[in-house]
């Protein structure tokens, strides 16, 4: 598959739009179908497609394993940290009402941060799993 010109050029054309679509799904999740889970999987799918066509070595340059492995707990921490922020602002755990002056805005901020945490964890977990399986086959 390494020297298939059409596949390589076609993939290079499509890849940025996959990432853009993932970001759209993430940030438009309040108004249309989508959210952190879907966006995370689509973004991970972009890295996996890149790895399938250009090789695992090239994929590890755009998504270095050390950084991706650090992102796995980071997302959970961001999620739990949003919950803790609610406690520090005088509410319950995962209660977003104190984040802004207006009920809707406060909850949109809370949902935004929480979904970002979900995106980070899901995306990096899928990439890490893919790397682990591929590395096992190479060695």
């Amino acid at each position: 598959m390494r020297f298939d010109l059409i596949l390589r050029v076609g993939a290079k054309l499509v890849l940025p739009f996959i990432l853009l679509f993932a970001l759209y799904v993430q940030f438009h999740g309040d108004y249309g179908p989508g959210g952190g889970f879907q966006a995370g999987v689509i973004a991970a799918g972009m890295v996996i497609l890149y790895a399938l066509i250009f090789g695992i070595r090239a994929a590890k340059q755009i998504a270095p394993p050390a950084i991706v492995e650090m992102m796995v707990p980071l997302g959970v921490l961001l999620y739990a940290g949003t919950g803790m922020a609610g406690i520090f602002l005088g509410d319950n755990f995962l209660e977003y009402t104190a984040f802004a002056h207006d009920f809707l805005h406060a909850h949109e901020w809370g949902i935004f941060t929480v979904e970002l945490g979900v995106l980070i964890t899901v995306c990096s977990t899928m990439i890490v799993m893919f790397y682990a399986f591929v590395e096992r086959g190479r060695s």
Binding site: G35, F37, V41, T125, F133
Partner: peptide, 20 residues
């Protein structure tokens, strides 16, 4: 179900790792 699907693929990968 949305969360169940994502958790499902994570646990499927864990099972496959055990199979390997």
């Amino acid at each position: 179900m949305l969360t169940a699907i994502v958790v499902g693929v994570a646990t499927l990968a864990l099972g496959l790792a055990l199979v390997v």
